[in-house]
Structure formats: structure tokens, C-alpha cells
Design a protein around this nucleic acid. Structure first.
Lengths: 353, 353
DNA sequence: CTGAAAGCGCTTACAG
DNA sequence: CTGAAAGCGCTTACAG
């Protein structure tokens, strides 16, 4: 007998396959002693249900809800995880799936709360979310816990949640990588480095903080004499960013390099005075369209990427695995900190995992 | 009617499902006019066979042969694609698969020829190979063509072959990336750069050549005054490498940087004089164990990686897709040129796609 | 609490 | 050349 099937278990335990199925999926209506006997045989035979037969038979449609910021366009970071999610769903022909989109305005916590209610009312089997509004999300997750709805987190983790899966990047470490690159590139006695934080006042800035910490700690350890200045450009309305940035960037010649700890480095390029020489090195995050254009132009030197497409893709696969195999998972997938330059951008641009 | 099944096609074409199946899989025994009628209905209904039902029903075991250099140990590049292949096979629970390993001594073309015969005699359904011995491999591939056995290529391409899939890195471009990194790191008037080619005289060196070309052309375009010296260490027996390297590395202080266009950069570290200061920057390829150790130590500055685990993984998925869906594929997957430093090594070390 | 039977969408002999 | 039937390993009512 090759790999044992439900029939083998049934025969050996002296029950019908219906009963075996009941204990395998824990849907009750089995006497305790029968259950124990079946469990023993399963153990003994090392029986593993054939998920493909199972899915063929049940004809179940797995409904995956996503609770993420609106993927505005290709210049918006959140466009990319959604792309990965859709791609994963498209490539899956093993199961029937259905996507429930619940997108919220990233600058509006009220909208988040509205959309989480909307999603709940759709009764998804599994959910993919990102902790943009951590506190509000936690409330949502405990609702999911109560309903035994499985969920995966992307981008940032909530370790005290019961997520089946998390994938994202070590933000502190990515700051160190940025610092290390600049340390390699800068001459022996460099001018100061500018850390330019451009962020909306509505969301918190834990990611920016952690990247910054990594950046600063690297220099503290490796080259303590390096001066690092921090400028915070806090905006409520994106339109005023140029005005807010101007006083800082006017003096760009004072700096040997500028580090932008989020996806906004294109805004620095856009608002730098037009003179061409002696520009500071510029290092930022994320392969959003506008950043890629400037990288190709040589106006941005390095971009660190966190494989957002891959994050979405992996989250779908993980949540589906949990749903199909009906077993718990508590997996963390650490995304590499990809260093992208003009010369290696090409292959990163194509969709890949 | 949701997605149409073979029954829907049969009914509409006034034939039995057996007949539909015959035309879908082209196994003849159908009159031309019946065939045409069925084909029309398939077109009309947009019928796509349900591969999972198909695989459940047929109980077919897909036999995948691999014809690759022996994966000696974790200090050997070829260890990693094989790891990816095995991992992919392990993760697949949708189909039954069987791996046929046919490993050859990378320094022995005769052994290659022996092992390719051995593999043929196993009658695999699909094959994964790498063009280490391009000429000899081509002969093998035409045998596969005759037998209608599908194959995927990894590492380097043979564009004129009928491979269903190729994945690998743009070697020329990776040389440019190495050059760009050094260009960023070196001071205004640097000392010369040493390109250190360490290679076995038995295999060809097309990969090394292309990386070198990319490297040199980058500097020609961006900084023509940069002097670049090339040293060729051609060995027949690995044991003599230290002796061959010594005269070159004795004078390491003459160089601002050393570029090793293959996975041998650890040998440079090992044979560098013990003095500690003023070491040239060192940039190499591949996250084999010994290189990773030196990267962590700060003795290697940059490693370029070509995701060998991922290459193996993807090749399995591609070849299986071709076999299961029984349709031709001619896909090229361009592997990103990952830049690895001490600070971002960690997440790359873990298995990921 | 338990079992027997039909069915998921295909493939595979077998009969004609 | 074509069709009817059994079966792949499960799940799902239904009956008892």
C-alpha cells in the first residue's frame, strides 16, 4: 500500500469513511472511544488527507478578504501588495477562490473603521491586512479571532496577535543597510548627512523611526564622527510639501548625502534646486514608479526595496494553506532588504516573487 | 452555468465525454469532423480542463530528471539549485512526483556523457539541466526533443534549444553592477582595480567573460581613466591555487579593489597576506558558505547573488506546469542581481524564493 | 452516533 | 471511431 487513504484508515479502525472524515475535520458526532481509535490508526498509518481530492469533492470557494490602504496608482506603495495578491489568486487553479476587496483611505482612520465593518459583514474565510492603524486593527483582529477567521499580516507585525502568517522587512536593519552603503560611498571626511523625514501627521511613524534608528546606530558604531542632521517635514496636505521642503533643500550643498526613510525620495529630487553639480548622494525606499524614473536618471542613487508584490503573493499562499489544510500556522517570513541601483533595476522591475 | 466542464462540452457537441477527452488530449481515434465540432464548442464555451480533477483521476506520477553537477557541499554553488528543486518537490502536494537524480563531476565531460545516458534510460517525463558542457548538452537535448520529453534550463541559456523554460541572470549586467558599486566606493583618484579570474581549465569560461565585459564596459563609459588589470589563474588541480595566486596577491597594496567574477572570492581572502590595513575592496559572487563567513567578517565587501535556490524551485514549477497542462511554454525568467553586504545578508540566508 | 450512497470533473480500460 | 461505466480520494446530505 503506497500512501494510505481514508479507506485504509476506515478499514483498520473498523469504521466507515464517513466517520474517519468526521474525526479528521473535527466536526463532532463521534463517540470518544471511536474517535480515539481512529486517531490512533491515523497516527499509525501516518495518514495525510489528500487536499486535492478534498477540494474537488467539496467544491468549496475560499473567500479571501483584504483590508488594505487604497492602491491609488503605481506611484503608491500599496498598489504593489495588491498586485501580488491578485497575481497569486490568478495563478491558483487548484482551488476556487474569491477576493473581497476592502480598501480604505490611508489618511483616514474613520474610513478604516468603516471598511473593517464592511469586510466583516462579508463573512470572509480568511483575511489579509496591514497594521497601518495598529490600535484599530487589533480590535478588528479580535473579532476575527472570535469568529475563527484566519488572517495574515503584511508590512508590519503585531506579534501579540494570532496571525497565521506575517511577512515583512526588518525595518531597523534596513536603516543599517542604508547607512552602510553611504559609509562605503562617502569620502574620508564627509560633510553631514541629512535624514529627511516626510510624513503625514495622521498616521504614526514607527517604520520611519526604526529605519532611522538603524541608520544612526550604524554610524555611531562604525564612524561616530559622522554628523547626521534630521529634518521632519510633517504635512497634513500633500500639496504643501514643496513649500515645507524648500528651506531644507535650499542648502543641499551642506550635505554629503540625504537619506529618506520612506518612499518619498522622489519628492526630494523634485524639490532640489536645479543646479547640477555637487548634489548629495540620495538613498530612499521602494520601487514606486516615480522613484524608478529618478533612479534610472541617476538622480536617486540607491533604493531599498521590500518586495511588496512578493509580500502580497506570499500572504495569499499562506492563508490558503491554512484554510485548505485546516491546520494552524504561525509563520514569519523575513523579506530581504534588496539594494537597487540604476544598473540592477531591470530584473527587479519585472514581476517576481 | 459557472465554469464549463467536460460534460457541458460533450452535451453541446452531441458526443460522449470520452470523445471530448480524446480531442482535448489529442490522442486520436476521432473522426475529423467530430474533432472539429468539439474544438468549436470548446472554443465557444471557453472550456479549460480542470487539472486537479485530471490529476486525481489519472493518478499519474510525474518523473523529473535532473542533470546537474554534483552538489558537493554547501561551499559548492551547485548545492543550491538542487536544494531549490528538492524544496519545490516537497511542497507540491497537488501532484505525485518523483525525482531522478543524475549528477556528474563538473570537471569531467566524460562523466557528463555517462550520466546523460543514465538519465535517458530512466525515461523521465521532464528534465532540468544546466549548460555547463554546452556542446554535449545540446546533443542530449535533441534526444529529448525526439522523445518529446520537456526540459527546463537553469543558470545559462541555450536560446536555440527548445527549452520550455529558462531562468538565470544577465551575466553581462551583473558585471556592470559590480563596477558601479566600486565606482561609488572608490575615491576620486583610485589605484588600479584587479580583476582576478580563478577558473578550471577544463570547463569553458563564458560566464566569467561576460561578467568581465560588463565590468570593463561600465568603467569605459563612466570613468575611462580607471585602470583595470586582469590576472588569470587557470588551474587543473584546486590544490595548486594558493601557489598560483601568491605572486598576484603579494602586491595587493597596488590595488584599490579586487573583483572576482565567480564564486571564488573566498580563495582571495584566504591567500591574502596577513597584514590588516589598506586592504583593497573585495567584490565577488554567490552566497556559498565560505563566502558568507568572510562577508560577515568584513573580509569580503560585496557579494552578488543569483538566487540559485530560486532557480531550482522555479524550474520545477515550470516543468510541472508544462507536463500537467500539456501545453507548450517558452518562458524566460530573469533573475535579479542581488547585492549582498554584511548588513543585509541575514534575510537572504534563509530559504526564500 | 454511524454507515451507505451519490457526486466532484476528469481518465481509463472495455465493448461494440 | 464512439460510448458507457468504473474509479481517483474525498465530502455531503440522508437514513437509521
Amino acid at each position: 500500500m503506497n500512501t494510505p487513504g481514508i479507506k485504509d484508515v476506515a478499514k483498520k479502525a473498523n469504521v466507515s469513511i464517513g466517520t474517519v472524515d468526521r474525526v479528521v475535520h473535527n466536526r463532532g458526532q463521534v463517540s470518544e472511544k471511536t474517535k480515539q481509535r481512529v486517531l490512533e490508526v491515523i497516527e499509525e498509518l501516518n495518514y495525510v488527507p489528500n487536499t486535492i481530492a478534498s477540494s474537488l469533492s467539496s467544491q468549496k470557494i475560499y473567500r479571501i478578504g483584504i483590508l488594505l490602504p487604497t492602491p491609488v496608482d503605481i506611484n503608491n506603495y500599496w498598489h504593489y501588495p495588491v498586485e501580488g495578491i491578485k497575481r497569486a489568486l490568478r495563478e491558483i487553479n487548484t482551488f476556487n477562490t474569491e477576493l473581497i476587496e476592502s480598501f480604505y483611505d490611508i489618511n483616514d482612520p474613520d474610513d478604516f473603521n468603516k471598511k473593517k465593518e464592511a469586510l466583516i459583514s462579508e463573512n470572509p474565510d480568511g483575511v489579509i491586512a496591514a497594521p497601518v492603524y495598529a490600535k484599530e486593527l487589533k480590535a478588528f483582529l479580535s473579532v476575527l479571532n472570535n469568529k475563527s477567521i484566519k488572517y495574515a499580516l503584511i508590512d508590519s507585525d503585531l506579534e501579540d496577535s494570532k496571525r497565521s502568517f506575517f511577512t515583512g522587512q526588518n525595518t531597523y536593519q534596513s536603516g543599517r543597510v542604508a547607512a552602510q552603503l553611504l559609509h562605503y560611498c562617502l569620502p574620508a571626511n564627509p560633510k553631514p548627512i541629512l535624514v529627511c523625514r516626510i510624513y503625514s501627521s495622521i498616521q504614526g511613524t514607527p517604520t520611519i523611526h526604526q529605519r532611522e534608528n538603524g541608520f544612526i546606530e550604524f554610524f555611531k558604531a562604525v564612524n561616530p564622527s559622522q554628523r547626521i542632521y534630521i529634518e521632519s517635514i510633517e504635512y497634513q496636505d500633500e500639496e504643501v510639501i514643496p513649500t515645507l521642503l524648500q528651506p531644507t533643500l535650499e542648502n543641499y550643498e551642506k550635505y554629503s548625502a540625504i537619506f529618506v526613510p520612506n518612499s518619498k525620495s522622489h519628492l526630494v529630487v523634485k524639490n532640489l534646486p536645479v543646479s547640477s553639480l555637487n548634489k548629495p548622494l540620495l538613498i530612499g525606499y521602494d520601487l514606486i514608479e516615480q522613484n524608478k524614473v529618478y533612479l534610472k536618471d541617476g538622480k536617486i542613487d540607491f533604493l531599498l526595496s521590500q518586495r511588496p508584490i512578493s509580500q502580497g503573493f506570499k500572504a495569499v499562499n499562506a492563508i490558503l494553506k491554512v484554510l485548505v489544510e485546516k491546520k494552524e500556522l504561525n509563520l514569519v517570513d523575513d523579506i530581504p532588504i534588496d539594494i537597487i541601483t540604476k544598473e540592477n533595476l531591470s530584473a527587479y522591475e519585472h514581476l517576481n516573487l
